[in-house]
């Protein structure tokens, strides 16, 4: 997954990532641990999480 410019840094996504692959400080950052499951995107109020190409 990747984060677009919409992200405000509310941190909601981190709670729903089962493998702790999102770090948030002013914006969400996706780490290499991400397995592209896409769960986080359903909880992002800003449509800031997109599938990685």
């Amino acid at each position: 997954m990747k984060i677009n410019d919409n992200c405000v840094g509310c941190g909601q996504c981190t709670a729903f990532c089962k493998i702790d692959a999102i770090i948030v400080k002013s914006k969400a950052h996706i780490t290499d641990a991400c397995v592209n499951c896409g769960v986080c995107a359903a909880y992002c109020p800003m449509k800031a999480i997109e599938a990685d190409e």
């Binding site: 405000v8 840094g9 941190g11 400080k25 002013s26 109020p45 800003m46």
Partner: peptide, 10 residues
């Protein structure tokens, strides 16, 4: 634990 920020659309 977490620093959360809010502006614009949220």
């Amino acid at each position: 634990i977490l620093a959360q920020s809010y502006y614009d659309g949220w």
